[in-house]
Amino acid sequence: MSRPVLATLDLSALRQNLLTARRAAPDARVWSVVKANAYGHGLDRIWSALAGTDGFALLNLEEAILLRERGWKGPILMLEGFFHADELELFDKYRLTTSVHSNWQVKAIQNARLHAPLDIYLKVNSGMNRLGFMPDRVHTVWQQLRRLHNVSGMTLMAHFADAEKPDGITHAMQRIEQAAEGLDAPRSLANSAATLWHPQAHFDWVRPGIVLYGASPSGRWQDIADSGLKPVMTLSSEIIGVQNLKAGDTVGYGSRYRAGGEQRIGIVACGYADGYPRHAPDGTPVLVDGVRTRLIGTVSMDMLTVDLTPCPQAGIGTSVELWGQEIKIDDVAHAAGTVGYELMCALAARVPVVTV
Protein backbone atom coordinates (compact mmCIF):
# COMPACT_ATOMS: atom_id res chain seq x y z
CA MET A 1 0.00 0.00 0.00
CA SER A 2 1.35 3.45 -0.91
CA ARG A 3 1.76 6.32 1.55
CA PRO A 4 -1.57 8.01 2.24
CA VAL A 5 -0.47 11.49 1.09
CA LEU A 6 -2.56 12.52 -1.93
CA ALA A 7 -3.32 15.58 -4.05
CA THR A 8 -6.89 15.75 -5.36
CA LEU A 9 -7.79 18.13 -8.20
CA ASP A 10 -11.38 19.29 -8.54
CA LEU A 11 -11.86 19.91 -12.27
CA SER A 12 -15.37 21.29 -11.78
CA ALA A 13 -13.84 24.01 -9.59
CA LEU A 14 -11.37 24.78 -12.37
CA ARG A 15 -14.21 25.21 -14.86
CA GLN A 16 -16.09 27.36 -12.37
CA ASN A 17 -13.05 29.57 -11.80
CA LEU A 18 -12.66 30.16 -15.54
CA LEU A 19 -16.30 31.25 -15.70
CA THR A 20 -15.71 33.56 -12.73
CA ALA A 21 -12.79 35.17 -14.55
CA ARG A 22 -14.98 35.64 -17.62
CA ARG A 23 -17.70 37.28 -15.56
CA ALA A 24 -15.14 39.64 -14.05
CA ALA A 25 -14.04 40.78 -17.53
CA PRO A 26 -17.09 40.17 -19.74
CA ASP A 27 -15.87 42.19 -22.72
CA ALA A 28 -12.40 40.67 -22.92
CA ARG A 29 -11.11 37.37 -24.19
CA VAL A 30 -9.24 35.11 -21.78
CA TRP A 31 -5.74 33.73 -21.87
CA SER A 32 -5.72 30.92 -19.28
CA VAL A 33 -2.23 30.97 -17.79
CA VAL A 34 -0.94 27.42 -17.38
CA LYS A 35 2.78 28.07 -16.95
CA ALA A 36 4.83 26.02 -14.46
CA ASN A 37 2.97 22.85 -15.41
CA ALA A 38 -0.35 24.58 -14.72
CA TYR A 39 0.87 25.97 -11.40
CA GLY A 40 1.85 22.50 -10.24
CA HIS A 41 -1.50 20.92 -11.09
CA GLY A 42 -0.21 19.10 -14.17
CA LEU A 43 -0.98 20.57 -17.58
CA ASP A 44 -1.85 17.23 -19.12
CA ARG A 45 -4.28 16.51 -16.28
CA ILE A 46 -6.20 19.77 -16.31
CA TRP A 47 -6.05 21.46 -19.72
CA SER A 48 -9.25 19.88 -21.01
CA ALA A 49 -11.17 21.36 -18.06
CA LEU A 50 -10.08 24.77 -19.38
CA ALA A 51 -11.00 24.00 -22.97
CA GLY A 52 -13.61 26.75 -22.83
CA THR A 53 -10.87 29.35 -22.71
CA ASP A 54 -9.96 31.57 -25.67
CA GLY A 55 -6.27 30.70 -25.46
CA PHE A 56 -3.55 29.26 -23.28
CA ALA A 57 -0.51 31.22 -22.05
CA LEU A 58 2.67 29.52 -20.88
CA LEU A 59 6.48 29.51 -21.11
CA ASN A 60 7.87 26.16 -22.24
CA LEU A 61 7.85 24.93 -25.79
CA GLU A 62 7.37 21.37 -24.56
CA GLU A 63 4.12 22.33 -22.87
CA ALA A 64 2.90 24.23 -25.94
CA ILE A 65 3.63 21.21 -28.12
CA LEU A 66 1.81 18.98 -25.62
CA LEU A 67 -1.32 21.10 -25.99
CA ARG A 68 -1.14 20.85 -29.78
CA GLU A 69 -0.62 17.08 -29.61
CA ARG A 70 -3.61 16.74 -27.30
CA GLY A 71 -5.75 18.51 -29.89
CA TRP A 72 -5.86 22.16 -28.83
CA LYS A 73 -6.22 24.22 -32.00
CA GLY A 74 -6.72 27.66 -30.47
CA PRO A 75 -4.16 30.36 -29.69
CA ILE A 76 -1.12 29.66 -27.52
CA LEU A 77 0.84 32.62 -26.16
CA MET A 78 4.49 32.15 -25.20
CA LEU A 79 4.82 34.65 -22.36
CA GLU A 80 8.61 35.00 -22.55
CA GLY A 81 8.76 34.51 -26.30
CA PHE A 82 11.52 32.43 -27.85
CA PHE A 83 14.92 32.07 -26.18
CA HIS A 84 16.98 31.21 -29.29
CA ALA A 85 16.41 32.14 -32.91
CA ASP A 86 16.30 28.51 -34.08
CA GLU A 87 13.16 27.95 -31.97
CA LEU A 88 11.20 30.03 -34.45
CA GLU A 89 10.97 26.96 -36.65
CA LEU A 90 8.83 25.32 -33.94
CA PHE A 91 6.85 28.51 -33.35
CA ASP A 92 6.05 28.40 -37.05
CA LYS A 93 5.22 24.69 -37.11
CA TYR A 94 2.93 24.82 -34.08
CA ARG A 95 1.51 28.28 -34.82
CA LEU A 96 2.49 29.91 -31.51
CA THR A 97 2.05 33.55 -30.60
CA THR A 98 5.30 35.01 -29.32
CA SER A 99 5.99 37.89 -27.01
CA VAL A 100 8.79 40.18 -28.11
CA HIS A 101 10.73 42.01 -25.42
CA SER A 102 14.25 42.47 -26.84
CA ASN A 103 15.89 43.90 -29.94
CA TRP A 104 17.56 40.60 -30.81
CA GLN A 105 14.13 38.96 -31.08
CA VAL A 106 13.04 41.56 -33.62
CA LYS A 107 16.10 40.76 -35.74
CA ALA A 108 15.54 37.02 -35.37
CA ILE A 109 11.97 37.34 -36.62
CA GLN A 110 13.14 39.48 -39.52
CA ASN A 111 15.69 36.84 -40.59
CA ALA A 112 13.54 33.75 -39.99
CA ARG A 113 12.27 31.56 -42.82
CA LEU A 114 8.64 30.94 -41.89
CA HIS A 115 5.76 29.31 -43.74
CA ALA A 116 3.36 31.98 -42.47
CA PRO A 117 3.69 35.13 -40.37
CA LEU A 118 3.39 34.95 -36.58
CA ASP A 119 1.21 36.92 -34.21
CA ILE A 120 3.27 39.15 -31.93
CA TYR A 121 2.76 40.45 -28.38
CA LEU A 122 5.03 43.46 -27.93
CA LYS A 123 6.05 43.68 -24.28
CA VAL A 124 6.05 47.07 -22.56
CA ASN A 125 8.14 47.63 -19.44
CA SER A 126 5.45 49.08 -17.19
CA GLY A 127 7.88 49.81 -14.36
CA MET A 128 8.39 46.29 -13.03
CA ASN A 129 11.76 46.20 -14.82
CA ARG A 130 11.80 42.56 -15.78
CA LEU A 131 11.14 42.18 -19.50
CA GLY A 132 9.95 44.67 -22.08
CA PHE A 133 10.79 47.84 -23.96
CA MET A 134 10.80 51.21 -22.25
CA PRO A 135 7.74 53.27 -23.18
CA ASP A 136 9.73 55.71 -25.31
CA ARG A 137 11.04 52.80 -27.43
CA VAL A 138 7.74 51.04 -28.04
CA HIS A 139 6.52 53.15 -30.95
CA THR A 140 9.78 52.64 -32.87
CA VAL A 141 9.86 48.89 -32.27
CA TRP A 142 6.17 48.62 -33.19
CA GLN A 143 6.86 50.22 -36.56
CA GLN A 144 9.88 47.98 -37.13
CA LEU A 145 7.79 44.88 -36.52
CA ARG A 146 4.87 46.17 -38.56
CA ARG A 147 7.11 46.35 -41.63
CA LEU A 148 8.23 42.71 -41.38
CA HIS A 149 6.62 40.13 -43.66
CA ASN A 150 7.00 37.54 -40.86
CA VAL A 151 4.66 39.46 -38.56
CA SER A 152 0.86 39.14 -38.61
CA GLY A 153 -1.35 40.48 -35.80
CA MET A 154 0.22 42.66 -33.13
CA THR A 155 -0.86 43.33 -29.55
CA LEU A 156 0.60 45.46 -26.77
CA MET A 157 1.34 43.46 -23.64
CA ALA A 158 2.35 44.55 -20.14
CA HIS A 159 2.30 43.30 -16.57
CA PHE A 160 1.48 44.79 -13.17
CA ALA A 161 3.65 44.57 -10.08
CA ASP A 162 1.07 45.85 -7.56
CA ALA A 163 -2.37 45.11 -8.98
CA GLU A 164 -3.56 43.61 -5.70
CA LYS A 165 -3.54 47.16 -4.22
CA PRO A 166 -6.46 49.57 -4.77
CA ASP A 167 -4.26 52.10 -6.59
CA GLY A 168 -1.64 49.59 -7.64
CA ILE A 169 -1.88 50.03 -11.42
CA THR A 170 -1.93 53.82 -11.65
CA HIS A 171 1.77 54.36 -12.37
CA ALA A 172 1.97 51.35 -14.68
CA MET A 173 -1.03 52.53 -16.69
CA GLN A 174 0.60 55.91 -17.17
CA ARG A 175 3.65 54.21 -18.67
CA ILE A 176 1.49 51.98 -20.86
CA GLU A 177 -0.51 54.95 -22.14
CA GLN A 178 2.76 56.71 -22.96
CA ALA A 179 3.92 53.66 -24.89
CA ALA A 180 0.61 53.27 -26.75
CA GLU A 181 0.24 56.90 -27.78
CA GLY A 182 -0.55 57.07 -31.49
CA LEU A 183 -0.90 53.30 -31.87
CA ASP A 184 -4.18 51.63 -32.78
CA ALA A 185 -3.27 48.47 -30.91
CA PRO A 186 -5.13 45.74 -29.05
CA ARG A 187 -3.90 45.30 -25.47
CA SER A 188 -3.38 42.45 -23.02
CA LEU A 189 -2.52 43.86 -19.60
CA ALA A 190 -4.57 42.34 -16.79
CA ASN A 191 -3.19 39.56 -14.60
CA SER A 192 -5.38 37.82 -12.00
CA ALA A 193 -5.56 40.78 -9.64
CA ALA A 194 -6.32 43.28 -12.40
CA THR A 195 -8.92 40.92 -13.86
CA LEU A 196 -10.75 40.86 -10.53
CA TRP A 197 -10.26 44.39 -9.27
CA HIS A 198 -9.24 46.80 -12.07
CA PRO A 199 -11.75 46.74 -14.93
CA GLN A 200 -10.04 49.76 -16.55
CA ALA A 201 -7.17 47.39 -17.41
CA HIS A 202 -9.24 44.67 -19.11
CA PHE A 203 -9.05 45.86 -22.74
CA ASP A 204 -8.93 43.02 -25.31
CA TRP A 205 -7.38 40.05 -23.49
CA VAL A 206 -7.01 39.29 -19.77
CA ARG A 207 -4.52 36.76 -18.41
CA PRO A 208 -5.84 35.11 -15.22
CA GLY A 209 -3.44 32.72 -13.54
CA ILE A 210 -3.64 32.01 -9.81
CA VAL A 211 -7.39 32.67 -9.67
CA LEU A 212 -8.03 29.77 -12.04
CA TYR A 213 -6.66 27.49 -9.35
CA GLY A 214 -8.74 29.06 -6.59
CA ALA A 215 -6.20 31.09 -4.61
CA SER A 216 -5.99 34.83 -4.10
CA PRO A 217 -3.54 37.05 -6.00
CA SER A 218 -3.26 39.14 -2.83
CA GLY A 219 -2.29 36.14 -0.68
CA ARG A 220 -5.43 36.66 1.43
CA TRP A 221 -8.27 34.24 0.74
CA GLN A 222 -10.65 36.68 2.42
CA ASP A 223 -10.20 38.96 -0.60
CA ILE A 224 -11.80 36.36 -2.88
CA ALA A 225 -14.23 34.82 -0.39
CA ASP A 226 -17.27 36.27 -2.14
CA SER A 227 -15.97 35.89 -5.70
CA GLY A 228 -17.18 32.37 -6.42
CA LEU A 229 -13.62 31.09 -6.83
CA LYS A 230 -13.03 27.59 -5.44
CA PRO A 231 -9.83 25.75 -4.51
CA VAL A 232 -8.84 23.20 -7.13
CA MET A 233 -6.07 21.36 -5.26
CA THR A 234 -6.52 19.57 -1.94
CA LEU A 235 -3.44 18.09 -0.28
CA SER A 236 -4.47 15.38 2.17
CA SER A 237 -2.97 12.55 4.18
CA GLU A 238 -3.56 10.46 7.31
CA ILE A 239 -2.24 10.11 10.81
CA ILE A 240 0.26 7.25 10.86
CA GLY A 241 1.37 7.51 14.49
CA VAL A 242 0.30 8.90 17.86
CA GLN A 243 2.44 10.02 20.80
CA ASN A 244 1.44 10.99 24.34
CA LEU A 245 3.64 13.75 25.69
CA LYS A 246 4.41 14.84 29.24
CA ALA A 247 5.31 18.36 30.29
CA GLY A 248 8.75 19.23 28.94
CA ASP A 249 8.77 16.66 26.11
CA THR A 250 9.93 18.03 22.76
CA VAL A 251 8.85 17.34 19.20
CA GLY A 252 10.87 17.05 16.00
CA TYR A 253 14.26 18.22 14.79
CA GLY A 254 15.79 21.00 16.81
CA SER A 255 13.31 20.37 19.65
CA ARG A 256 11.49 23.52 18.55
CA TYR A 257 8.24 22.61 20.24
CA ARG A 258 8.09 21.77 23.96
CA ALA A 259 4.91 20.47 25.59
CA GLY A 260 3.58 22.59 28.44
CA GLY A 261 1.71 19.65 29.94
CA GLU A 262 0.22 16.33 29.00
CA GLN A 263 -0.61 16.39 25.29
CA ARG A 264 -1.58 13.95 22.56
CA ILE A 265 -0.06 14.48 19.13
CA GLY A 266 -0.46 12.88 15.70
CA ILE A 267 2.23 12.09 13.16
CA VAL A 268 1.10 12.81 9.57
CA ALA A 269 2.54 11.22 6.43
CA CYS A 270 3.56 14.43 4.65
CA GLY A 271 6.75 16.46 4.73
CA TYR A 272 8.83 18.93 2.80
CA ALA A 273 9.78 16.27 0.25
CA ASP A 274 6.09 16.17 -0.63
CA GLY A 275 5.92 19.94 -1.06
CA TYR A 276 4.75 21.02 2.38
CA PRO A 277 6.74 24.11 3.46
CA ARG A 278 9.59 23.17 5.79
CA HIS A 279 9.55 26.58 7.47
CA ALA A 280 5.88 26.41 8.47
CA PRO A 281 5.81 27.48 12.14
CA ASP A 282 3.99 26.09 15.12
CA GLY A 283 0.34 27.08 14.80
CA THR A 284 0.04 26.66 11.02
CA PRO A 285 -3.55 25.47 10.49
CA VAL A 286 -4.30 21.81 9.76
CA LEU A 287 -7.63 19.97 9.55
CA VAL A 288 -7.83 16.62 11.36
CA ASP A 289 -11.04 14.60 11.03
CA GLY A 290 -12.88 17.78 10.09
CA VAL A 291 -11.56 19.69 13.12
CA ARG A 292 -9.22 22.65 12.79
CA THR A 293 -6.01 22.20 14.75
CA ARG A 294 -2.36 23.22 14.39
CA LEU A 295 1.06 22.11 13.28
CA ILE A 296 3.65 21.68 16.03
CA GLY A 297 7.37 21.04 15.68
CA THR A 298 9.66 21.28 12.69
CA VAL A 299 8.42 19.73 9.45
CA SER A 300 10.55 16.71 8.50
CA MET A 301 11.29 15.37 5.03
CA ASP A 302 8.49 12.81 5.20
CA MET A 303 6.39 13.67 8.25
CA LEU A 304 4.86 16.51 10.22
CA THR A 305 3.23 16.63 13.63
CA VAL A 306 -0.15 18.02 14.72
CA ASP A 307 -1.78 18.79 18.04
CA LEU A 308 -4.67 16.38 18.72
CA THR A 309 -6.02 18.29 21.73
CA PRO A 310 -9.04 19.68 19.78
CA CYS A 311 -9.80 16.28 18.26
CA PRO A 312 -9.37 13.57 20.92
CA GLN A 313 -11.24 11.09 18.74
CA ALA A 314 -8.45 11.12 16.12
CA GLY A 315 -6.07 8.19 15.82
CA ILE A 316 -4.07 6.20 13.33
CA GLY A 317 -5.77 6.35 9.94
CA THR A 318 -7.67 9.58 10.65
CA SER A 319 -7.89 11.88 7.64
CA VAL A 320 -5.89 15.11 7.49
CA GLU A 321 -6.27 18.08 5.15
CA LEU A 322 -3.07 20.14 4.76
CA TRP A 323 -4.71 22.60 2.38
CA GLY A 324 -7.77 22.62 0.17
CA GLN A 325 -11.46 23.18 0.78
CA GLU A 326 -11.28 24.05 4.48
CA ILE A 327 -7.65 24.93 5.11
CA LYS A 328 -6.92 27.68 2.61
CA ILE A 329 -3.60 27.39 0.83
CA ASP A 330 -3.17 31.14 1.31
CA ASP A 331 -3.31 30.69 5.10
CA VAL A 332 -0.67 27.96 5.05
CA ALA A 333 1.51 30.03 2.76
CA HIS A 334 1.13 33.15 4.90
CA ALA A 335 2.10 31.23 8.02
CA ALA A 336 5.20 29.91 6.24
CA GLY A 337 6.19 33.33 4.92
CA THR A 338 5.52 32.56 1.27
CA VAL A 339 2.65 32.64 -1.25
CA GLY A 340 0.12 30.09 -2.43
CA TYR A 341 1.73 30.13 -5.90
CA GLU A 342 4.90 28.57 -4.46
CA LEU A 343 3.10 25.83 -2.56
CA MET A 344 1.13 24.79 -5.64
CA CYS A 345 4.23 24.72 -7.81
CA ALA A 346 6.24 22.85 -5.15
CA LEU A 347 3.98 19.80 -5.09
CA ALA A 348 6.45 16.92 -5.37
CA ALA A 349 6.41 14.37 -8.16
CA ARG A 350 6.19 11.57 -5.60
CA VAL A 351 2.74 12.70 -4.44
CA PRO A 352 -0.01 10.78 -6.23
CA VAL A 353 -2.55 13.00 -7.97
CA VAL A 354 -6.17 12.17 -8.74
CA THR A 355 -8.74 14.27 -10.57
CA VAL A 356 -12.43 14.40 -9.69
Rank of each mutant, 00 (worst) to 15 (best):
A172D: 15
A259L: 10
L245Y: 14
G241D: 15
A247C: 12
A190C: 06
A108T: 02
G228F: 12
R294T: 14
R70K: 15
K107H: 08
R23E: 14
N17P: 07
V138T: 14
M233S: 09
T155R: 14
G317D: 07
N244G: 12
V124P: 11
R70F: 10
A7E: 11
D92K: 14
A49M: 08
R68P: 01
L229T: 03
G81R: 00
W72L: 02
V211S: 11
V34F: 05
R70D: 12
R137M: 13
E69F: 14
M173P: 11
T293M: 06
A158T: 09
G290F: 13
Q143E: 15
E238N: 12
S236C: 15
G261M: 04
R23V: 04
V356T: 13
L11P: 03
P135S: 02
Q110L: 10
K328M: 14
S2V: 11
R3G: 12
R187W: 10
T97M: 14
G74Q: 04
Q143G: 05
L196T: 00
V151M: 07
M78S: 01
A179F: 14
A161H: 02
I224G: 03
A348I: 02
T318N: 08
E69S: 13
E80F: 08
H101G: 08
D289M: 02
G324R: 13
A190E: 05
A336T: 00
L304F: 01
A280K: 02
L235W: 13
V138C: 03
T355R: 09
I316S: 11
R68L: 01
V356Y: 11
P312L: 03
G40Q: 05
L156M: 08
G127A: 06
G81Y: 08
S32E: 10
A64H: 00
R29G: 10
N103Y: 13
F160S: 04
W323N: 00
D44S: 07
F133Q: 06
G324H: 03
P199C: 10
P75C: 02
D226E: 14
H101K: 08
H171T: 10
R113T: 15
W197Q: 06
D330C: 09
M128C: 06
D274L: 03
N60E: 12
V138W: 11
K93N: 02
R29M: 06
D226L: 12
L9G: 07
L347P: 05
I296P: 00
G81P: 01
A335T: 03
H84E: 15
G252N: 09
L287H: 13
F91N: 06
P310L: 01
Y257H: 02
A336P: 01
D330S: 13
N129T: 08
T170I: 13
W205K: 04
E63H: 11
T97L: 04
H149Q: 15
I76H: 04
S319E: 12
L88D: 00
G132Q: 09
K123V: 08
G40E: 08
V339R: 13
E63W: 12
S126E: 00
A225I: 10
L148I: 09
F83W: 15
I76W: 04
T298K: 13
D119V: 04
G219D: 03
K107M: 05
I210Y: 09
W31K: 03
R146D: 11
